[in-house]
């Protein structure tokens, strides 16, 4: 019986653990300035992506400039963004916003194809607002007209 235990132990150590397939992507920092810290992690099991914002403060300016780089795994003739904001486990805000539509491609990258690598450095059409003190979880999801995920991010905003 002892032999069996040893063998089982060796097996669990040697055999590829199933959890290694679903290893999480690293957490990246969008910014850490003054009393605001923003982190994100890709929740698309297939890939990571890069994102940063030019300015980071409690008083968020309208028309922020951002940078992002990623590989498209879907066509983005139509692209939608869902945002869900939580604090202390309760939901505060949910909304959905069209980024690319057939009759209104808002950004120059609209209409690019599956497999293309895109890099965007430019403004987004956000309103200016004040971030209140606290810790927030933000779930962002980009998807196309077939509801296929284009990008997914779990972000944490800590404002002190």
């Amino acid at each position: 019986m002892e032999g069996f235990t040893v063998a089982l132990l060796i097996w669990t150590l040697v055999s590829p653990s199933s959890s290694s397939n679903s290893k999480a992507w690293p957490t990246h920092t969008v910014c850490r300035e003054g009393n605001l810290e923003v982190f994100y992690q890709s929740c698309d099991p297939l890939q990571d992506f890069g994102f940063s914002a030019d300015q980071c403060s409690k008083h968020l300016k309208p028309k922020l400039n951002i940078r992002f780089g990623m590989i498209l795994r879907e066509d983005i003739k139509e692209l939608f963004l869902d945002i869900a904001l939580f604090t202390k486990g309760s939901s505060i805000l949910n909304f959905s916003y069209p980024i690319c539509e057939e009759d209104l491609p808002k950004f120059s990258f609209c209409g690019r194809r599956k497999g293309e690598q895109i890099y965007y450095a430019g403004p987004i059409n956000n309103p200016g607002f004040e971030i209140f003190e606290g810790e927030y979880q933000v779930l962002l999801e980009l998807y196309n007209e077939n509801r296929s995920t284009v990008a997914c991010a779990n972000a944490t905003v800590i404002c002190s």
Binding site: G3, L8, I10, W11, S15
Partner: peptide, 17 residues
């Protein structure tokens, strides 16, 4: 012998995995 059979068992397990 039991140890060997255990190993066999383990090999079979990992194979199925």
């Amino acid at each position: 012998a039991p140890c060997a059979s255990c190993f066999l068992l383990v090999v079979m397990f990992s194979a199925s995995c």
